[in-house]
Write a protein that binds this DNA or RNA. Structure first.
Lengths: 175, 175
DNA sequence: GATAAAAGACTGACTAGACAGACAATAAAG
DNA sequence: CTTTATTGTCTGTCTAGTCAGTCTTTTATC
């Protein structure tokens, strides 16, 4: 898996399975004893990375305290994870838009992100977004995070400042 | 070009050039008399679609009037174009994240979007986003629009309502 | 108007290379 | 000896791009 992350991050989804196997230090054939097809590998990788992102985002979340602080906690964790594992984040970006990823994988992934959605639900209570589907607000938040991370990576100077500016923007959206 | 849009929208960037040629009603060989390589075709297509999007967004923009109304005009046009040409929009989404698209094409494309950026610049005057790079705000707006369109297409019921909710969210971000 | 010549657009079979996945052979372990 | 894990070669398929030759259109000549 970690070999796949490294290879896909640098070569994209078109990377040959042989390259991934080599990077992992096993033969081409062995790879197919662990994953039936390349698509299988990609789907598993997608679900795993999403779960890791969700776990990273929720890590150390204070159970008490104001919602805004909890949300900021998640936001900060999210950005930190993405910027400190640029390869994982890049691979995830590739996988997220691939049509090799099944509907099932997407659903599984979104289930692992439920913790974040729950907090987002509470965040928007009585806010201007209270009357649209939660999935829509979640999509906007995710898009905002992705765009922010992209910019931070391309523009490391002032990354933290931009991350914070984007959080405030997010908060203005929901609250 | 329009054949490429149709084929890529349904098959992704991996679509064989032969399929595109067939859809266009010409031979495989002819395609390469008009485009040196497949990448050339994709880059031209990307720039063209971005230009079309920009033109559609700015179409009929009232020169006078409040900025908010002008911005809403652009926003509405943007969403209308994307939802009424789902194939173009889908193809553009594929191209936008492809690494076949050169830096040069991206720059050319962003130049054609300058009109929108200019209005965005005025929109954020004295607003909370006044101190971050304009490119960052533009990236957030673009991400918001994309996510909104995605949701509208997957969720046609209440599409207009969601489009308007997203615009208000955008306005809360910048103003 | 009829014929011929030149230009160039178009064709589709072909090449060379890449890749996913299969499989027979080998090594390791119990 | 049996079972299981691993190997790396092999194959069938697919695809970007080529090119020798055909067909169509335009131009020139009588």
């Amino acid at each position: 898996m970690s070999a796949a992350i490294r290879v896909i991050a640098s070569q994209g989804l078109g990377a040959p399975t042989a390259t991934i196997a080599k990077e992992a230090g096993v033969s081409n054939g062995s790879l197919f004893t662990y994953f039936q097809t390349k698509a299988d590998l990609l789907n598993q990788l997608y679900v795993e990375l999403k779960a890791e992102l969700a776990a990273a985002a929720l890590d150390g979340l204070p159970t008490k305290g104001r919602i805004r602080e909890q949300m900021l906690h998640i936001w900060t964790n999210w950005l930190r994870w993405a910027t400190s594992c640029p390869e994982k984040r890049r691979t995830l970006a590739h996988l997220g838009v691939s049509d090799e990823i099944t509907l099932d994988s997407h659903q599984t992934a979104s289930r692992t992100m439920a913790g974040i959605a729950k907090l987002l639900e509470r965040s928007r209570e009585n806010g201007p977004m209270r009357d649209v589907p939660l999935g829509f607000v979640a999509a906007l938040m995710s898009a905002l995070a992705d765009a922010t991370i992209d910019f931070m990576i391309r523009n490391p100077a002032g990354a933290d400042k931009h991350g914070m500016a984007a959080f405030k923007a997010l908060w203005r959206i929901v609250k």
